[in-house]
């Protein structure tokens, strides 16, 4: 067996998976997106751009997604970074593993059930009731974009914490001593050494969370009360309710293209930020 054929053999499972789970479905979606809806739903072969022309009908869903996905990513980052920093830099090494496990523990339960828990926390008998007890009356949290944001941050926090944690954990602590030795206060050391050194982790975490948020539908459906509508929710309705496969495919294809464009732009930005750095490894 030649080296080349061995390599091909090694790649075969991944290649087959890639073909069956990604290339073929995407091709089908692309073909469907130029078709038409059947009378009782489904797909009728055709070649028309009508479905793409109809995209503005889902503009609101795209707008919501394009606002809430970056907002959710940013919010996750702002909460995850201090946590990851504490775990990696400050936490007592004896407790580090325990604390890390605590970060993962929620992942043992389905996101569905965890999101349901938030219905009760954010509902009238939860946090608003506590606020009412201290005199802040009639706070409505559940079924708002804010509730969706909370659900997103809660659901995706570990995905943000881990890359940053790994990055900070690997950070040579002697660099922090060196910075201090050279006259930088702890805060300036953070800004000039820790933060720039953890950029790869931040970039990875943001990418992971952002990509998943672009396709999100569960959290807005549960915590947005059906009023906060992502592209993912539009797709679920198009395929399962109105059974408009052609238009659904056009929306899906547009989402994929949008994601590709955004992620490519993002990767280029990160590359430029860490231009000559050897240790910018994104994934």
């Amino acid at each position: 067996m030649t080296q080349r054929s061995r390599n091909l053999l090694l790649l075969a499972p991944a290649g087959a998976w890639f073909l069956v789970m990604l290339v073929i479905p995407l091709t089908v979606v692309l073909i469907f997106s130029f078709g038409e809806r059947g009378a009782a739903g489904g797909y009728v072969p055709a070649f028309t751009l009508d479905q793409y022309a109809n995209l503005p009908a889902r503009w609101a869903a795209f707008k919501n997604t394009l606002i809430l996905a970056p907002a959710g990513t940013l919010a996750s980052l702002l909460i995850a970074y201090p946590l990851a920093y504490y775990l990696a830099v400050r936490a007592d090494p004896r407790w580090k593993t325990v604390l890390l496990v605590l970060v993962i523990v929620p992942f043992w339960t389905s996101i569905l059930i965890r999101s349901y828990a938030w219905i009760f926390l954010l509902g009238g008998r939860g946090i608003p009731a506590l606020l009412a007890a201290i005199g802040i009356e009639d706070v409505r949290l559940i079924n708002t974009p804010f509730a969706v944001l909370i659900g997103i941050v809660y659901g995706y926090l570990p995905l943000m914490v881990f890359p940053i944690f790994v990055n900070l954990d690997r950070l040579d602590k002697r660099l922090l001593e060196a910075s201090s030795d050279l006259g930088a206060s702890p805060w300036r050391t953070f800004l000039q050494v820790t933060l720039p050194m953890s950029l790869p982790g931040i970039a990875t975490g943001c990418l992971l969370v952002f990509i998943l948020l672009m396709g999100e539908f569960l959290i807005p459906a549960i915590l947005g009360g059906g009023k906060v509508f992502f592209v993912g929710n539009a797709l679920v309705d198009l395929f399962l309710q109105s059974r408009n496969w052609a238009f659904g495919s056009a929306v899906a294809a547009t989402l994929v293209i949008l994601m590709l464009v955004t992620v490519t732009a993002y990767m280029r930005l990160i590359r430029r930020l860490g231009a000559q750095r050897e240790d910018v490894a994104l994934m």
Partner: peptide
């Protein structure tokens, strides 16, 4: 049930 206009109407309502 199968009327596409009604399905679209609901989608507009939900995403508004």
């Amino acid at each position: 049930l199968t009327d596409p206009n009604r399905a679209e109407l609901l989608a507009r309502f939900k995403s508004a």
